[in-house]
Design a protein around this nucleic acid. Structure first.
Lengths: 344, 344
DNA sequence: TCAACTTTTGAAACCCATTTCATAGGAAAT
DNA sequence: ATTTCCTATGAAATGGGTTTCAAAAGTTGA
């Protein structure tokens, strides 16, 4: 299956390769009759120019690499698809890799993407979201970013990565305002690792808001863990077993919320009549669960656009603010309601 | 940010570019001291060879393209991640595109992937899953497959695409055996388009199995539509409104099942006590819904491996059987139970 | 020590498109 | 009709690797 090249086309058309190239790129004058002859042959052989060869001279390859933690998680797949659409509109392609939480793999993929000479890499989740950056990791990243610019959704102190973050402070604000407005005073926070930037910021916000409303901060109400169903289920069970039971729960994402909800139902309580549940991410899960879940949306379309725009700017050497924030929005559904009378 | 090349390394090491290349590919003898000097410089400059330039001579690019309908759907993201892992183990990369159900986009992406000179393309969902292939589409595909081999999960008559299919007949067998074994005689089928191969085959199997068990086929029990929550919800509502209410429902996937479940709950019935619900795909949703959903699993790891192996074989010109089947497995959870006494 | 091998090595060709540069051909201006 | 200015075109250089081929260097054996 030998591939056809512009030379084959050129020979058969009786022109030079340069002329074929001009027809392909369409940015120089070619006599109409020759142009037509070349186009006919391109059609005939179903010829498509080799993007590899092209990008050798092009310098910039019009490809953005994305390293996501795991697209099987709805949050990442939503961001990814948003990025892909934004990239396509701008004449770019994206390449996706899943790091699956393994730092080694993450770095290998960064390397592979650089070998592919992508213009920039966007990192979704993974090591760059950690609150405190590991020195060795930062060093490796610094080596790589001398080759290819990196856009992260967290932050990496001591590097030149561009940051596009969700405004986590605003996100917790929205949830707390909503719940406090409904009369809740006992609000638990379930799931998430405190050493992850966004989770840490949410916790900070939680304490700040409690103080602003003269509400007590209770250690037992903050129960971290992972970002999955299991964590939500286990931690809510613990709350039932040990601590005082809150009137509202904020889960770190929709998966954790599903776990929280099951635990509540298994304990014979109703949502939202007995306990309100809300979460972050606003994935499709929110509509599938029963009751439908109140959740914080991140305007994924805008989010993807900003990520891609930042990446393209970085690839093309254009300056952009190093930190950009995405404003979240609260989507209220059935899982939150006013606190019961006589309680709180 | 001028990139370093093997020539830069060669000059500084006082050797020829050929020698540097030999060190990189590691497949020829190079005097140890020179090898070491070159490796030191590679390290020093953090040099990585340009994969584009490499694949110009390599012919085969060690990249497989994947066109999925939409990775925001759990099914596709599971297959994709499985493919990615299988590819990595075999020294390949994958590039993902989402066709979002648009045939034009699908073809554009096929073209883009060919321009990238991927070794093969795997198509998940989309046009190739249609029962009857559109002539114009087939023609375009035939043109493209003269350039790059295509692996599909459906079938495309009149083309040379390799097929890796889930054994849909076996899948419906598993579900029906399970439900009939539980005493169900009134089983509805909800969701899916009949012009999609796998859905069609499931319907065929459904009729065959009913006949084998001397059960009546009832038109009203087969309610097609899309593959989403809405379809499940709407069609189950219709069943409640118009038709006889079945004792069990098989939804075309977990999303549709979620819709079916909500409709049932909203009608004041319980799952599985009043109605059993089961579905295909066994995505993470099955564990998140309440009750947990009985669903048919496709051994995604094996599925991904077979897809990638087939794609790599095609890329390297190795013969493989044109059609390969994946055997599904039933995962029984809480959403199915024996039919109530006095019914059926 | 010299012939006969084997291992290393670099120059040059090659992969495939783009782009520069110089030339050839036409059209417009004098 | 001649000069001037564009437009159209091809040869060759370029980008960054790999590979072939032939020469150089190192080994071995007699």
């Amino acid at each position: 299956m030998k591939n056809i090249t512009i030379y084959d086309i050129a020979r058969e058309a009786g022109v030079s390769a340069a002329t074929v190239s001009r027809v392909l790129t369409n940015n120089a004058n070619v006599r109409p009759e020759k142009k037509q002859k070349v186009q006919a042959l391109i059609e005939k052989y179903n010829f498509r120019p080799n993007a590899m060869a092209r990008s050798l001279t092009d310098t910039r390859s019009r490809v953005i690499g994305i390293i996501a933690a795991d697209v099987r998680n709805s949050y990442y797949s939503k961001v990814f698809v948003a990025c892909e659409m934004a990239a396509r509109e701008r004449g770019y392609m994206v390449i996706l890799c899943n790091s699956l939480g393994e730092t080694d793999l993450e770095l290998m993929q960064l390397e592979t993407l650089y070998e592919q000479r992508v213009g920039a890499v966007i990192q979704l989740g993974g090591r760059a979201d950690d609150l405190v950056s590991d020195t060795e990791y930062v060093e490796t990243i610094n080596q790589m970013t001398s080759n290819v610019p990196l856009v992260v959704t967290g932050k990496l102190d001591g590097t030149v990565c561009r940051q596009v973050q969700i405004d986590a402070g605003k996100a917790i604000d929205l949830l707390m305002d909503h719940l406090i407005g409904l009369g809740h005073k006992e609000i638990a926070l379930i799931g998430g690792r405190k050493d992850v930037l966004s989770t840490f910021e949410k916790l900070q916000g939680y304490r700040r808001i409690l103080k602003e409303h003269h509400l007590d901060y209770r250690e037992e109400y903050v129960r971290d863990g992972g970002y999955d169903y299991e964590t939500g289920y286990r931690q809510m069970n613990e709350l039932f077993a040990c601590g005082p039971v809150p009137t509202a729960v904020i889960a770190i994402n929709d998966y954790a919320a599903a776990g929280v909800m099951r635990s509540i139902v298994e304990h014979g309580l109703r949502i939202p009549e007995d306990i309100s549940v809300a979460s972050y991410d606003n994935t499709s899960l929110t509509e599938l669960l029963n009751p439908r879940l109140t959740s914080v949306d991140y305007h994924y379309e805008k989010f993807g656009e900003k990520l891609i725009e930042t990446a393209i700017a970085a690839a093309e050497g254009i300056e952009v603010p190093q930190l950009q924030l995405i404003a979240p929005e609260l989507i209220v559904r059935e899982s939150t309601a006013a606190v019961k009378n006589g309680q709180g």
